[in-house]
Design a binder for these strands. Sequence first.
DNA 1: CCTGATCTTGATGACTTCTTGACGACGTCC
DNA 2: GGACGTCGTCAAGAAGTCATCAAGATCAGG
Lengths: 225, 225
Amino acid sequence: MTHILVVDDDKQLLRALRIALTARGYEVSLAPDGTSGLLAAQRGPLDLVIVDLGLPDLDGVRVVEALRGWSATPIIVLSARLTEESKIDALDAGADDYVTKPFAIGELLARVRAALRRSVPVEQIPIVRTDAFTVDLTARRVLGADGTEIRLTPTEWHVLEMLVRNPDRLITHRQMLHEVWGPRYETETNYLRVHMANLRRKLEPEPSRPRHLRTDPGLGYRFTP
Amino acid sequence: MTHILVVDDDKQLLRALRIALTARGYEVSLAPDGTSGLLAAQRGPLDLVIVDLGLPDLDGVRVVEALRGWSATPIIVLSARLTEESKIDALDAGADDYVTKPFAIGELLARVRAALRRSVPVEQIPIVRTDAFTVDLTARRVLGADGTEIRLTPTEWHVLEMLVRNPDRLITHRQMLHEVWGPRYETETNYLRVHMANLRRKLEPEPSRPRHLRTDPGLGYRFTP
DNA sequence: CCTGATCTTGATGACTTCTTGACGACGTCC
DNA sequence: GGACGTCGTCAAGAAGTCATCAAGATCAGG
């Protein structure tokens, strides 16, 4: 579910936003000041952050800057300040949007949708991680746990890609042979054995005890992140 | 240079924006109505579009929708309308931001910077450096480690550009042949071998042991900075 | 029309990847 | 407990791909 963090010291507004956002199907976290907001942001991945500029401990601009230090999550800034400078400062610090209080809740929700829509291309990069390796499907690259590149042959990549695109789902011998080698090779399960062995040798910490590239005896193979 | 299209029927505002944006180093195109705005957008690649909602021919929201049909260029909407619905409509149609008239020019500029910053990851990689050579994509130039210019042929440049614009990403033979030579040459992998060899001879310290222009056997080539 | 640069084309050897067959380990079913 | 089938492993030969070179074809500019 889409996860939104709201940082604001106005209890009443916080409650109103929680209700409005939850009603739209967002998962909402709340933080009453900048420090706890940053802590909450570090705890888990967020899809959007809404920050008030007037916080009791930190200036909201500081919060935006801190967040931008390590995260690309979209940020919407709220503020009662009317001066132009504060808007500019916040946007230049890395905020994605700026809403002046008082605002209509419907407008804020529209801006939330716009910000989330924009961030989709960034978020949805197909990268699959396990504790042993990372598969970047767009770059066609596999990195080991230590970040070194692991080189795969064309067939190995094709097999791995098919498994990784269907996490936790069983891929039958037939399906895989059909997709990778073609319709006429659906009985050549030998091929699978050899190439799966090679993949495991390159990717699994203990190739003989595979934890991510698993075998379903008699049926096929399965990737578990 | 960053190219911005402004669509508005208010001549005075148009002039003010042109001056303000040009002064900031942006390249500015102007269009007085929606139709000519869309035409201008189709003519060449844009980095940002600013649209007024109140246009003489089309509603600004229609313009936004039309643009979004084929382009991901960031869009900022201007409007004198105060109703909440119009903002929501515009943002949901695909606009990235919404500014109410009258606005301070400084705020608009900040929002322009914010919108451009967001779109950066897609567009902007003007200069790429490695320890052996530097590629300036805008100037179409390559410099060696000692700063001397390295001359590339048109095809060499086209190939190198495609690789450098996608660092660490695999470019398949097919993709490269399609883009550089055209759809009918997708099987002529010989071409690639010859031109990659030439590029390596010019760019790599040890052409036979390439470190930046790498080959993924059976798949394609890859640039690693 | 000539000249120099650039691109295409073909041939070669080195290398990588794939296929193929054999063998033992494991689990299941009778 | 033994026979059977499936799986993982290994190694060697076959097939394919790549880098490199050089010569012919093509193109642009003078």
